[in-house]
């Protein structure tokens, strides 16, 4: 039986972490964005979820941040960790330097401190790109009958694209999205790629072209590949964007 690191990693001298948090409470007219520094003792297997919770509980009860699943599944806790977007809940402090700077994800409406309104952005994106299966008479499906068949490989390919957790890291990592507020970003374009691949969706390339065949869609992307590099779920975004670009370019011609 192979031992796990839990047994083999020797107890290290614990560090004092210096956590610098970019704070701002828009609900308070007197608040201005500023860095606040907290110091905490690092614990074994401490994640940023644990660290931030401890800071709120013991040092500053007004600190705002979002965690839901704390298991890297729900996408709530995207933030800039030393300048790079990532999921705070599954970031272990032992992988970070002694000084950790945290800031809210840029490109989204700030709710307070590290909490941003990714939900509003994503809902807007969903409404705009109509990210659902379009088919005739969807309200009158025969749910007693055996389901339609699908190639097993196709189902797996669909799930590959369906794994997006809408955390917003790709938007925060994208220079284009940072500059152009109406750019749908990889999160949006990946959705189009996902539904385009789905045979249950009856939309044609002409329909998709209407949605993303412009500068706020696939042709706005400058291929900076921040999305590909910082996607916490390692979605194949570069491929999907290239694929969609080819299809939409053909459609546009």
């Amino acid at each position: 039986m192979k031992p796990t690191p839990m047994q083999t990693i020797p107890l290290k001298q614990s560090r004092t972490l210096r956590i610098e948090i970019l704070r701002h409470n828009p609900a308070d007219p007197d608040s201005h964005p500023h860095l606040q520094v907290f110091e905490i003792e690092e614990a074994e297997t401490m994640t940023l979820f644990i660290a931030l919770t401890e800071i709120r509980q013991t040092q500053d009860a007004s600190l705002q941040f979002d965690f839901v699943c704390r298991a890297g599944i729900c996408g709530s806790c995207g933030m800039l960790i030393n300048g790079r977007p990532g999921l705070a809940c599954r970031t272990l402090t032992r992988e970070l330097p002694d000084t950790i700077r945290l800031a809210p994800l840029p490109g989204f409406e700030l709710i307070g401190d590290l909490s941003v309104n990714t939900g509003k952005w994503m809902r807007g994106m969903s409404e705009r790109l109509e990210t659902w299966v379009h088919r005739e008479n969807i309200e009158a499906i025969d749910i007693d009958a055996v389901e339609q068949r699908m190639a097993p490989e196709l189902a797996e390919q669909l799930y590959e694209l369906e794994r997006c957790i809408e955390c917003g890291c790709c938007i925060a990592a994208c220079g284009t999205a940072q500059m152009h507020e109406d750019f749908v970003g990889a999160a949006g374009l990946n959705q189009i790629a996902r539904f385009r691949l789905d045979p249950r969706d009856t939309r044609s390339d002409a329909d998709y072209y209407e949605l993303v065949g412009d500068e706020s869609g696939v042709f706005g992307c400058m291929t900076l590949l921040g999305c590909e590099d910082y996607c916490p779920k390692n979605l194949p975004l570069a491929v999907q964007l290239a694929f969609l670009r080819r299809k939409m370019a053909r459609q546009g011609l």
């Binding site: 800039l80 300048g83 790079r84 840029p106 220079g175 291929t223 900076l224 910082y230």
Partner: peptide
């Protein structure tokens, strides 16, 4: 974009 560049240090 300048804030982004300064923060992310992303090669591409």
């Amino acid at each position: 974009i300048h804030t982004h560049l300064r923060s992310i240090h992303h090669a591409d």
